[in-house]
């Protein structure tokens, strides 16, 4: 047995023990207390313009259609519930959707930033995923960066006349992967490697979360395609009402 094989074997044993002890391999929420104070503040500030833009968008929606308040609230609750349900998994560990791609495709990135931040607060308080001091960092990766990319890809695919299924799949899974990259970067910046610097740490974090995140992104893509197709087959008027163009 080579050293590499030996290492892989040992790591896999350690990982499997960890996963069997705590079966909930949740999406990439940075836990409470993990980030140093400066990082908490910086990420919070980075989120601010997006959140303010989101607030204005929602205010505009309400001004045009007051009925939207219960509709948006239901949509927020939907994202929360969808992210708390167990999804079918290939690896056997228990995993969940992030729902960000789906949210971005259905409601657009501005609305999702606000719904996302509320969902993240509730996930922290009600499910203990994520935290209050790490809210800024999590909001940026899950409610801003991921949805923005998803939305961008979704629109781009539409413009390029790529089939809708492919577009939705790419949007959701790449958005998911992007979220995971951003989180890895956030973690690496917070605790850079002593001699390799931030870049080495980024690679490290990307590597360690890849085994759970890569399959998850693909599953998320597939599920999002299936959900969007299901919605389009029997809910066109409702979708129009929330501003989604089929």
């Amino acid at each position: 047995m080579t050293k590499l094989q030996n290492f892989i074997l040992r790591t896999s044993v350690v990982l499997s023990i960890i996963f069997s002890v705590c079966p909930t391999a949740f999406a990439m929420h940075i836990m409470e207390g993990y980030l140093p104070p400066a990082m908490c503040i910086v990420w919070g500030v980075v989120c601010l313009p997006f959140v303010i833009k989101g607030l204005f968008t929602i205010k505009k929606i309400f001004a045009e259609n007051r009925r939207a308040i219960t509709m948006l609230a239901m949509s927020g609750a939907f994202i929360f519930v969808i992210s708390a349900l167990k999804i079918p998994s290939v690896t056997g560990s228990c995993s969940h959707m992030t729902g960000t791609g789906l949210g971005a495709i259905l409601f657009g990135p501005c609305t999702v930033s606000i719904l996302g931040i509320i969902v993240l607060i509730f996930q922290a308080i009600l499910l203990a995923h994520g935290g209050l001091t790490t809210l800024g960092a999590n909001t940026f990766s899950m409610a801003i960066a991921g949805p923005l990319l998803s939305y961008g890809i979704f629109r781009l695919c539409k413009k390029l006349n790529v089939s809708k299924k492919v577009g939705v799949f790419l949007a959701a899974s790449l958005g998911d992967l992007f979220t995971y990259c951003i989180t890895s970067i956030q973690l690496a910046i917070a605790y850079p490697s002593e001699n390799g610097g931030v870049m080495a740490s980024v690679v490290e974090f990307l590597g360690v979360f890849a085994p759970t995140q890569l399959p998850l992104a693909i599953v998320e893509g597939i599920l999002t395609v299936l959900i969007v197709m299901a919605l389009e087959s029997y809910a066109v008027p409702e979708l129009k009402a929330i501003g989604y163009e089929a």
Binding site: M71, S75, F78, P88, L223, L226, M229, A230, L231, A241
Partner: peptide
């Protein structure tokens, strides 16, 4: 899962 999610969303909007 997709069926459940889809009909959940519709029932939520209704």
């Amino acid at each position: 899962f997709a069926m459940v999610a889809g009909s959940l969303f519709i029932s939520a909007l209704k």
